[in-house]
Amino acid sequence: MTIYSLYIFDRHCACVYYQDWHRTVRPKMAVEGGMLPAVYAPVYPQANPDTMYGNRNTFSAPSSGIVVAVNDDVPHTPLPTQTQSPIAPIPPPPTSSLSFDEEAKLVYGVVLSLRNMIRKLSGKDEQFVNYQTSTYKLHLYETTSGYKFVILSDPAADSLRFVLRQIYSGPFLEYVVRNPLVEMNSRERGIDNEYFRMSTDRLVRGLTVFQ
């Protein structure tokens, strides 16, 4: 029993927040322009060119800190040598075949199609709750304001709707809705901030299904 990942989508279909826990297949870096900033920093493409630039720039001497020659016409940062931090790049664990933005779009597409399908089949305003495959179970909670909370868990888990509701009524309201620094509905930024990430993390880690 475990919990894999959490996605939050706003009413404009954009992924505004992502967090993962026991996920073995890592999400791949998003393509430029594919995702909003402040969603999930590790896959945001802006962070990438700096390190890539540092690796590609074979003419600069890393120890001296002096750039001898630059093989790129437009430097991405004014001081490329500074980006060669002492922290070595972490060897990549197995990554998904999908880039993060594509994956988020697929999740949203599946959730939306299933929601419409359930609504059509039931003939009333019935909600889609979850679906289950051999390796995971996807749960959906939709708020009145159109935010969709999606969590991926172990297939044996019971309905985790109450958890999604807790994330909404606890951390989300406290650190996103009541946070004047978070621009909701901006279509330009996600809702990621330190407090929200930390308190969601604490909430999920405290669950009995999380082991």
């Binding site: 894999y4 990942s5 993962d20 026991h22 996920r23 073995t24 297949v25 075949s97 999908l98 994956e103 697929l106 999740v107 597409g109 599946v110 199609s113 299933l114 399908m117 359930i118 089949l121 039931s122 019935e126 909600q127 889609f128 709750v129 979850n130 679906y131 289950q132 495959t133 051999s134 390796t135 995971y136 996807l138 991926l152």
Partner: peptide, 24 residues
């Protein structure tokens, strides 16, 4: 949807959806 659900697995290869639940 069934084809997409098998690609979204967070841990290795997965089958497509077995059970899709609504509220009733």
């Amino acid at each position: 949807i069934h084809a997409i659900t098998s690609r979204l697995s967070p841990t290795g290869s997965s089958s497509g959806a077995h059970v899709i639940s609504g509220e009733t």
